[in-house]
Design a protein around this nucleic acid. Sequence first.
DNA 1: TCGCTAATGCAAAAGCTTCTCATTTCTATA
DNA 2: TATAGAAATGAGAAGCTTTTGCATTAGCGA
Lengths: 139, 139
Amino acid sequence: MSQQELKKAGLKATVPRLKILKILEAKQGQHMRAEEVYKCLLESDEDIGLATVYRVLTQFEQAGLVARHHFDGGHSVFELDQGEHHDHMLCVKCGRVDEFVDETIEERQKAIAEKAGYKITDHSLYIYGVCPDCQKNVG
Amino acid sequence: MSQQELKKAGLKATVPRLKILKILEAKQGQHMRAEEVYKCLLESDEDIGLATVYRVLTQFEQAGLVARHHFDGGHSVFELDQGEHHDHMLCVKCGRVDEFVDETIEERQKAIAEKAGYKITDHSLYIYGVCPDCQKNVG
DNA sequence: TCGCTAATGCAAAAGCTTCTCATTTCTATA
DNA sequence: TATAGAAATGAGAAGCTTTTGCATTAGCGA
């Protein structure tokens, strides 16, 4: 049960938090906006407000349960944190999102930060392009 | 004169566009929000609306004159495009922004995109950390 | 210089996110 | 198991950044 997960993260095991966690688990691998999580809740006949969705997602982020990304467009998307850092490649046509991990880039980033005297806390790398499918569809 | 630059970019040389271009040139190397550009205009006693600032910055972006970035926080920042792509390193304490270029990372990105079948159009890499000054000030 | 088209200013609106506060829910304790 | 205190929630208002609609103004070619 996810009750333990929440407790372990220092969060009370409330109904909204459990439901939201369950949704994120169901959509693992996808990137959801707060609004989308909210819609899922509505579809499950859960009476949970959008404000709570935002609050809970932010708490989950702070607790390290989910990762928040800012893809181009200005809004936030969330995904369950699978523990391993990864970066993103996005299709500018269809919005598809792929994930990747590259040790070389990770290393270089550390080196760059170190050289500049920065104590690195985080990083985000987005590659934008046209995915294979969309290339086909255009010709 | 920047009149030519605008014409060359396919934009009419209007007063607002010239003024905004001048401000961006004056603040070269910095990253400005639309609001900040607007304030600069007010200080210069220019009667230019915020909506126009947004419109002009977007046109400049499309014309390739400026680059738009989405640092964490949700809003856009703009900087004059110096022609050469670079990435960013941001201090999470003071907001300082440093720029860097790294060929190795550029190469790896291309390779990753290619391997996934993506036709890369753009990318953005942000390294977040604590800058040297802020490390000192904390202890 | 004149007129047409594009650009601008203003204010209203839109989209995402946060805040306020009265009410409800947890959790620890008796 | 009932209870009190603290924390969390719901609903809607508010906040911020950005966009849009429309009447007015300005740029540019003839």
